[in-house]
């Protein structure tokens, strides 16, 4: 029988499971002491500023591709000479590939 992706069935079952679990979830404890020391985020050492910089968030991922990023940053400077040079280079590559 041909597999056709039916999103409606998936959504219905997702919601059914969600409600059953929500029903179980409600039996848990809801109250907590608001605005006390309990809700402060846990810091073991000196408390840094509330927001840490998320900019270079994929530090681990970059480490392995450091050389590639250096190369990419080098060839792509923002001026029209480089743009036109890259465009002509690309169309020459395209022509060579096409004429194989």
């Amino acid at each position: 029988m041909q597999i056709i992706w039916q999103p409606k069935i998936a959504l219905i079952f997702f919601l059914l499971i969600f409600f059953i679990i929500y029903f179980f979830y409600l039996s848990g404890e809801k109250k907590y002491k608001k605005d006390t020391f309990q809700t402060m985020a846990y810091f073991s050492g000196k408390t840094p500023s509330q927001n840490i910089k998320l900019q270079n968030i994929y530090w681990g991922f970059f480490e392995d591709f450091k050389k590639l990023y250096m190369f990419l940053a080098k060839i792509q400077k923002e001026n029209s000479n480089d743009y036109i040079f890259l465009f002509i280079l690309g169309s020459i590559i395209f022509l060579l590939a096409l004429s194989l």
């Binding site: 499971i17 969600f18 979830y25 848990g28 404890e29 809801k30 907590y32 002491k33 605005d35 509330q50």
Partner: peptide
């Protein structure tokens, strides 16, 4: 865990904090 208090941290957004706990189980 079900008996203990479920604390919402001060700066966090309540509905995202709790919704995605349920979504991961479902």
């Amino acid at each position: 865990l079900m008996i203990k208090e479920s604390v919402i941290p001060k700066g966090s957004i309540k509905w995202i904090f709790e919704l995605f706990a349920l979504v991961s189980l479902t």
